[in-house]
């Protein structure tokens, strides 16, 4: 495993260490709209400061890395490693397609969240908790410590080496693709996976059900949600998401207003009993 960091310079090794520690705080300031964006930015700052010399370039990279980010925490350093290696290539060449950075980042986070959640939440945690519970029921005081060790040792190994693996893979392969002019193909492919995941996540995570029913003479003659489901399942979450997208892209409505508007409208709708 030590091979991973063999080709890294001393500076890069230091950056890797910083990324490892900083990425612990990925969800410290988690927000509904952008999840771990600030934690991702915080983990990327050492790279941004190292790679970019001009203030303008730094700002651009900072805006880029403040985008929505949500994945399994054990997998996050891997994504960060890939992203960091791409930022490095972007800083070294003039015509690097910076949009590809976010495309790759977004396409990685969905699948890795799925893999990480099922391995770490679903399997490792259950095993660790199962062992600790049986120890605790026998009165063993060490149970919580054993639980934490059983869970955290594998997770920390994945976090530590995952980051280095991501950085190395990103540096080797993405650089090569770039030189051959194939990065646009990769970006498009990644964007396809990304968009499909976003579509899937829209269906999975955006929830909005109508509770309003038309009652005439004590009889429910129309259940609005049921009726909508017959037309198209998830038509409301999909429409709301597309509306937000349209407002963001075409109308340049700020995220602040979108968030505030969503909260206010939700409470109002709850007050009148529609949802």
């Amino acid at each position: 495993m030590s091979k991973l960091s063999k080709n890294m310079s001393k500076d890069e090794k230091k950056l890797m260490r910083q990324m490892y520690w900083r990425s612990f705080t990925l969800y410290s300031a988690v927000t509904p709209a952008k999840q771990g964006a600030s934690g991702f930015e915080y983990s990327m700052l050492p790279f941004i400061n190292k790679f970019y010399k001009k203030e303008e370039d730094k700002k651009e990279a900072m805006i880029r890395q403040m985008s929505y980010f949500n994945t399994n925490l054990a997998m996050a350093p891997f994504v960060m490693g890939v992203t960091a290696s791409m930022e490095k290539q972007n800083s070294e060449s003039d015509d690097f397609n910076a949009e590809s950075i976010n495309a790759i980042k977004t396409s990685l986070m969905g699948p890795l969240a799925g893999i990480g959640d099922s391995i770490f939440w679903g399997v490792l945690r259950v095993i660790a908790a199962g062992i600790a519970i049986s120890l605790a029921k026998n009165g063993n005081i060490a149970a919580p410590i054993i639980f934490l060790l059983l869970f955290n040792i594998p997770v920390q190994l994945v976090r530590w080496y995952g980051g280095q693996l991501g950085y190395t893979l990103g540096s080797n392969y993405i650089g090569e693709l770039y030189e051959k002019g194939l990065i646009n193909i990769l970006t498009k492919a990644a964007s396809i996976v990304g968009l499909m995941m976003v579509g899937a996540m829209t269906s999975n995570m955006v929830k909005f059900d109508l509770k309003w029913n038309m009652v005439v003479g004590g009889k429910t003659i129309l259940r609005s949600q049921q009726m909508l489901n017959q037309i198209f399942i998830g038509i409301l979450p999909l429409s709301i998401t597309l509306l937000c997208f349209w407002l963001l892209k075409k109308k340049n409505v700020s995220i602040n207003w979108l968030i505030l508007g969503t909260i206010v409208i939700s409470i109002l709708l709850a007050l009148v009993g529609v949802v």
């Binding site: 709209a33 396809i192 909260i263």
Partner: peptide
């Protein structure tokens, strides 16, 4: 109401991702 908002707010996040990834040629995949 806040629970409802918490369920709808991911839409804003998704919209921001779409702003990054959206391209007419591949929008069908969404």
């Amino acid at each position: 109401g806040l629970t409802v908002a918490g369920n709808v707010l991911p839409a804003v996040g998704m919209a921001m991702l779409m702003k990054i990834l959206w391209d007419k040629n591949i929008s069908a995949f969404y």
